[in-house]
Nucleic acid binder design. Structure first.
Length: 414
DNA sequence: GCGGATCAC
DNA sequence: TATGGTGATCCGC
């Protein structure tokens, strides 16, 4: 059969030699807002506007409040829902902090959005084998202090660069604090017994950057394995931002993406890089879990009896005739658990567009006005794009007015 | 080559 | 009361 020939080819190309990681910040926008306003912590909340919620916290999710849901539906599901407006500058700056950590493990990592990225850990893991213990050791604030307003939340690992000792111990660190210009040792008169005592007489360390007391910390040395490394990466993100991330570890991007969802939030999952484990993982995986298969594709596949990745394989003869070459290849790679093993940096932007949703209008003058507004807006966007030394072709592709008499968008809230 | 459909985030 | 915006790819014409 034609289909089987292709499967053989793909099987031969199977590459299990890469360690690909997908990092996904947990309920990112919501987590940032909760971090900066702890009063939101115990409430169901979502970030976004009346029209659209970008994300919700886990409390709100229990009520069925999801990303990509209009705010008023969210309120209907959960009347106490607190909706916080988007604060993109903030998310961008937190995202930068996260990306700077990821870059230490793979300079060519590929960000998919503010809260998601793929990286190839393969090279780092090789280098890691000859890495001194100090470089694998990190100062970790006790997690109980994540919400504390009175304790320092600066990234304590920044001091590692000025700390000269070959190895790190808590005693030596305390000694270092007494000398460092970034810290001050003070006698604690109040009863904040939980602060970092550097001796038994109630002395504690104050961070001079934020003027707050250092919370208790411990030193954690991470091992050489991929899982240890990803634990380290997630811990460092949490120490720096007070936000948690989940991760998937797998031999390719397609699998890593599915994995990062498995132990969410604040967890990770690894697929061992051997054919048996990969096939076992894929076995009962619903096709919808795979990035690229959306609601429509899922429904079409369901219609021909395909629900899981195994079904893709079993119905390969049928799919071969129903779908294009490109789609069929894509399906066959999925049911073999094969995906891209090269994490590539974003290539250059190929297009720029502007669109807006507005309430029903029909007067030609109003429609014309909308057109002009869009052109103006797109023109502004173009100005802020670096176009020097580049060939640009501008073409008006689509001017589309969609008249909606009622909301008809069918959303996938599963 | 174009526009519609689909998808991710 | 009320359902977003941007970029990309594939497919059928």
């Amino acid at each position: 059969m034609e289909a089987d020939k292709l499967l053989e080819d793909f099987e031969q190309q199977r590459d299990l030699s890469h360690t690909i990681v997908h990092i996904d910040m947990d309920a990112f926008y919501a987590a940032v807002e909760m971090r900066d306003d702890p009063s939101l912590k115990n409430k169901p909340m979502a970030v976004g506007g009346d029209n659209m919620l970008s994300t919700s916290n886990y409390h709100a999710r229990k009520f069925g409040v999801r990303a990509a849901m209009p705010g008023f539906i969210g309120r209907k599901l959960c009347p106490e829902l607190v909706i916080v407006p988007l604060n993109f500058e903030k998310y961008t700056s937190v995202s930068k902090q996260v990306k700077s950590i990821i870059a230490e493990y793979d300079a060519n990592f590929c960000p998919m959005s503010l809260d998601e990225a793929y990286l190839d850990l393969t090279e780092h893991l090789k280098k890691r084998l000859s890495m001194p213990v100090k470089e694998r050791t990190f100062i970790c604030r006790h997690s109980d202090y994540a919400d504390s307003r009175s304790h320092c939340k600066c990234d304590l690992n920044e001091i590692k660069s000025e700390y000269a000792e070959e190895d790190i111990t808590v005693d030596k660190l305390n000694e270092f604090f007494t000398k460092s210009e970034h810290f001050q040792v003070v006698q604690q008169d109040t009863d904040s017994a939980k602060a970092t005592n550097i001796d038994k007489e109630g002395k504690c360390v104050v961070c001079l950057k934020c003027k707050k007391v250092l919370p208790p910390f411990r030193l954690v040395t991470f091992g050489m394995s991929d899982e240890d490394t990803v634990n380290e990466l997630r811990t460092r993100i949490e120490q720096k931002t007070t936000l948690t991330a989940s991760a998937g570890i797998a031999p390719n991007m397609m699998l890593a993406k599915v994995c990062s969802d498995k132990n969410k939030p604040n967890g990770q999952y690894k697929i061992e890089p051997n054919r048996e484990t990969v096939m076992e993982f894929i076995k009962n995986l619903p096709t919808r879990k795979v990035s690229g298969i959306g609601k429509v594709s899922e429904a079409m596949l369901n219609a021909v009896g395909v629900y899981t990745c195994t079904d893709l394989y079993e119905k390969r003869g049928l799919l071969y005739h129903l779908y294009s070459q490109i789609s069929f290849n894509y399906f066959m790679r999925i049911c073999l658990g094969i995906g891209s093993t090269t994490v590539e940096r974003d290539s250059e932007r190929k297009s720029m567009s502007t669109e807006r949703t507005f309430s029903e209008i029909n007067r030609p003058a109003d429609l014309n006005q909308k057109c002009e507004e869009l052109c103006e807006s797109l023109s502004e966007d173009l100005k802020s794009e670096r176009l020097k030394g580049k060939t640009v072709s501008i073409k008006i592709k689509t001017v589309k007015f969609e008249v909606r008499t009622r909301a008809h968008t069918v959303r996938d809230y599963t």
